[in-house]
Computed example of a mutant assay.
Amino acid sequence: MKIASIETIPLRIPFTTGGPSAGGVWGPKDLQMVDSLVVKVTTDEGIVGWGETFGFTAIPAVKVVIDTILAPEMIGTDVTRREKLQGDLQKKFHVFGRSGAFIYGLSAIDIALWDIAGKAAGKPIYQLLGGSEATSLAAYASLIRYADPELIRVNVQRAVNSGFRHLKLHEVNPDVIRAACEAAGPGVEITLDVNAPWSVREALDMTEKLRPLNLRWIEEPVWPPEDYAGLARVRQHGGIPVAAGENASTLMDFQHLLEAGAVDFIQPSPAKMGGITELQKVYALANAHGVTVMVHAFYDGPGLLAAVHGSAALGGAKSLVEWRYFDLEAQLYGDAIIPRNGRIDVPQGPGLGIEPDQDVIRDYRFKP
């Protein structure tokens, strides 16, 4: 069975957030549209697989790379040679960079090829990865940045009232973070992603202020994010567990991150770092270093499903799944993947387990 076609599908879906967004690395202030890039791979036997790459403002570059470089290289190749394709194409195009558009594009296609493999075998991907006893996983509501104590209180309470017992903040102001922790109350676990804003010294000063809040982790506190030695210093002296990895793009990046002793939680993002094929390897590497994997999944489509299957099979029942708390106007999978009482179901159908709603694809497709 061979790859017959690869199609890139940009989607733009309006959303609300319980108040105006303060902006962040994902987009401007008052952002009200979320852009994603879904990839459709069709085989010569008519089996269709779906993948997803990192979206937002990265979409035009990734779309060009897939359409003009990766797709021509991959059409006609054997769909079962996922790992060989991954290695060959990473090597062939390394001069264009070991991160960004090329790796993102490979990631989406790899997820689609796993979807095809599961459909051909009649099994969900988590079974192809070794199986799991978990039929659902705890999800954490990943909030936007509000930068306002009152808005964060309202939205934390909204998330808690809808059943979430794990929350992720994207705030950088200690007063706002403190307000969120107070609003959450006892029994709700808070993590904090600050998106790499500070020097090591600044990060240590901030962890001193934040230490009394008992955060489960602080995510990417150091700029640049590849300063693994600096990250290790924050981990050693900051008094808060450290998480990182969404900006690591290859297996070597994760090896360097782990060898530096930089993290308590490592966060591969399957739609950015090579798909499910590379995700398996990061789990093995993390296990060898005694570090917990918490898959990054700031997505709503096949990238999210890939994270759910990988987490269930490779991480087990104690894994957490990131749920983008965006109140989308339309969901690619309807209500099939929406968390209930703070838990997200592990899909049981073949491949990724759920098919995208073609009406959503038709109605929200756009030209970047």
Rank of each mutant, 00 (worst) to 15 (best):
I75Y: 08
A112F: 04
A336W: 00
G55D: 12
M74K: 05
Q348P: 04
A179V: 05
I338R: 08
R362D: 11
T80C: 01
P28D: 13
G351Y: 08
G27F: 08
L143K: 03
Q331M: 06
A260L: 12
L167C: 03
G261V: 09
P212I: 13
G122M: 13
V79E: 11
K168S: 13
Y364P: 01
G261T: 09
E83H: 13
L251R: 10
D335Q: 14
L128I: 13
P268Y: 05
S21N: 09
G239E: 03
A317C: 10
R98K: 13
T17Y: 03
G163I: 11
Y104P: 00
L137D: 02
A312S: 12
D363E: 15
L151M: 15
G55V: 04
T207Q: 04
R233M: 12
Y228I: 01
I144T: 09
I266F: 00
T80G: 00
A4Q: 14
A317Q: 14
A134N: 06
A121H: 11
G122C: 11
D264V: 04
G187R: 04
A108N: 07
V34N: 11
G49V: 08
N173T: 12
V34E: 13
T42G: 00
R362M: 10
G187P: 13
G105I: 01
A317E: 11
F54S: 06
L31Y: 01
A260T: 06
I9Y: 02
I59D: 00
I344K: 01
L215K: 07
P174M: 12
L128T: 11
I59F: 06
I338H: 08
E246S: 06
F102P: 00
Q127E: 15
N155H: 09
Q255S: 10
A262W: 03
F15V: 12
V34P: 00
G130H: 12
Y126Q: 08
L37G: 07
D67I: 14
G238K: 01
C181I: 13
M74E: 07
L151T: 10
I144K: 01
A134K: 03
N155Q: 15
K119S: 04
S199N: 09
Q236V: 00
K123Y: 04
L352T: 04
E45K: 11
L320K: 08
V41F: 02
V154S: 14
Y364H: 11
A336E: 14
T135G: 09
L129H: 09
V64W: 09
N341E: 15
S99H: 14
V200E: 08
D345K: 07
H166G: 05
V234T: 03
E182H: 07
A101C: 10
G310D: 10
A297M: 12
G27S: 04
F54K: 02
D110E: 13
L257F: 09
G275T: 07
A229D: 13
R12T: 07
G261E: 13
L89C: 05
P339D: 01
H289W: 12
H289E: 08
R165Q: 13
V34S: 10
T77Y: 06
R340C: 11
G315L: 05
D357Q: 06
K40H: 14
D253A: 04
F366Q: 06
G342L: 08
R324W: 07
P339W: 00
P10H: 10
Q127R: 11
Y283P: 03
Y228V: 03
Y146C: 08
A179T: 10
I9C: 02
W50A: 02
T68R: 15
E171W: 02
I344N: 04
A336K: 14
L192H: 13
F96S: 14
